[in-house]
């Protein structure tokens, strides 16, 4: 933070107010409904670009499974075995080197591209990139044309093929619209740079951070430091989409 004083100045007042509001919530209203104090959430940080660094060497097959089920629990989606129509926000990919037979497992989800083809092709603008780089579908305006699914190079998106019930409050989802990984945007809005997406929470034990969430725009952030030191692979880098999700160990 200190390295970027301009940014700090710019956002400090707003953040200060938000911080105060949060304090007020604790002090004044324990257990009472106080509707005007809803500003506790951090909200969207316009200067940030959120990303994730996934260290495939630190992930066993069971870890990747844990990522997937954590995401399912968090957002309330399920996939029946062998289903072609059920949604998969994140999936376990097995990569095998043909010569050696060596296998790797990694979680594959929306890569939150900087120049997302899904956003470019969406006729209504329902596919959009937030100011902080998270790519979402606004399900209120999605017409279900599936053009974005055709355009995504990572097959990251799912169409909801049937009526749903019992959706979770944090992840509204319904028939006839398209969805994908949100980078746990509800956690990001609450916790800002300290957010831990559900998949990361499932695999990060003690100090190991097999999935590291952070701000790619902040050179001091851990993710930027690690990328600087160890590098990270952009999938299909040839397409120049600059995904926000990077992989190590590929």
């Amino acid at each position: 933070m200190a390295t970027n004083p301009g940014k700090l100045l710019q956002s400090s007042r707003r953040d200060f107010l938000k911080g105060t509001a949060a304090v007020a919530t604790i002090l004044i209203a324990p257990g009472i409904f106080l509707y005007k104090t809803g500003q506790a959430a951090a909200g969207l940080e316009r200067e940030a670009r959120w990303g994730m660094l996934i260290d495939t060497n630190a992930l066993s097959e069971a870890d990747v499974d844990a990522c997937v089920s954590a995401c399912q629990r968090e957002h309330g989606w399920q996939t029946a075995e062998g289903s072609r129509t059920d949604a998969q926000w994140v999936r376990k990919l097995r990569l095998e080197e043909p010569e050696t037979g060596h296998q790797k497992f990694l979680p594959m989800m929306c890569q939150h591209c900087e120049s997302p083809p899904c956003v470019d092709v969406c006729p209504t603008g329902a596919s959009f990139k937030r100011a902080d780089g998270i790519v979402l579908v606004d399900r209120h305006t999605c017409i279900g044309c599936r053009y974005c699914m055709m355009a995504c190079p990572y097959k990251a998106r799912s169409f909801i093929h049937e009526n749903l019930k019992d959706q979770l409050p944090v992840a509204p989802r319904g028939k006839g619209t398209v969805e994908s990984c949100t980078m746990c945007v509800h956690r990001v809005d609450r916790d800002g740079a300290d957010a831990v997406p559900a998949c990361a929470e499932a695999v990060n034990r003690n100090d190991s951070k097999a999935i590291l969430f952070g701000n790619l725009n902040d050179p001091q952030s851990e993710i930027s430091r690690r990328l600087r030191e160890l590098g990270g692979t952009r999938l299909r880098a040839d397409m120049g989409l600059n995904p926000g999700v990077r992989y190590q160990g590929l």
Binding site: Y35, T37, G38, A40, A41, G43, L44, D132, D138, D189
Partner: peptide, 10 residues
Amino acid sequence: TVIDGERGSK
């Protein structure tokens, strides 16, 4: 909420 991440709205 969807676009600006404003989660605490009354």
